[in-house]
Amino acid sequence: MNADFITPLDAFTIIDLILMLMLLIVGLAIVRLNDIFAIVMLAGVYSLVSALWFVSLDAVDVAFTEAAVGAGISTVLMLGAMLLSSRTALPAKPVRKWASFFIVLATGAALMYAVTDMPSFGDPLSAPNAYVGLEYLKRSLPDTEIPNVVSSVLASYRGYDTLGETSVILTAGLGVMLILGMGGKINGQLKKKAIDYDNADAQAHHTVLRVVSKMMIPLIVLYGFYVQFHGDFGPGGGFQAGVIIASAVILYALIFGVDAAKAAVPPLVVRIGAALGVLIYGGTGIAGLILGSNYLDYNVLDPHSAPHGQELGIMSIEIGVLITVCSVMLVIFYGFTSRQPDITDKDW
């Protein structure tokens, strides 16, 4: 611990304070509310404010992901589950409230006890900041030629964690498939109806929404690919891009119907994609083994230049991540929509 460092009070501190205050208010509101719709929306707000705070704390990659996953996909899933069940929660019994309060109090006290030995906020020489983190900052460019250190650590130095993370996503997709099914294959008749989205049924949906979304969806996909391939230089990468591209398909499904989406992106393709991404990632690691080095060593992928090999390896595994994340998001979406009556306009 570096005792000399004193956290300055500047404009950033004030922004931080405001954001923290907002988080506290939202958190307490969730505790008090029993209306599930409000709770779900506030949870989305909580994620979004957190994402803002992460930007202020220089964690741009995290902010991006939190906004896309925490505020975006999670909220959509929650809303989907909410539509299938009752809208209000039973208030907790007083006994349970007090018991929970004391458990939380004890846990919080344990953490508060530790605060005095924590490093000062913003200290560049604190234990976490001055050791391996600083080392990554210094070596990322020479080792991998990738300026975004978060990308190089994620994909190379700690690439094995990321393989595990991609597998976690795959496991979740598999779980939703097993628990909810995928709604089966769409038969010929349904498919015809789905593609014929100019019929009277579909006309009931808002025309403006349909036209605008038709223009938006290609742009969203394009942006997804930008995020994917620009991830080496700026915030972004396979996870964010996968979520963005999946959200384009989900938007399409929301406006033109799930069957239309299933006709465009069939469930089988999505299932193959979910597995394929992990196999691409794992296969890149195996390539390292075959070329005579350790698992996930990208240096050997290009015999002439180790950093270039790193770049190749990172690109390859990021594509694997993109495919799995995008596919699993759709597996989950199809799984949930196969269970529920179509969301009608009245529900909004």
Binding site: R271, A275, V278
Partner: peptide, 16 residues
């Protein structure tokens, strides 16, 4: 690594 990676990568294949 093979101890872990073998079942990890074989899992997705089993789906099909």
């Amino acid at each position: 690594p093979l101890v872990v990676v073998t079942p990890l990568l074989a899992g997705p294949i089993a789906v099909f």
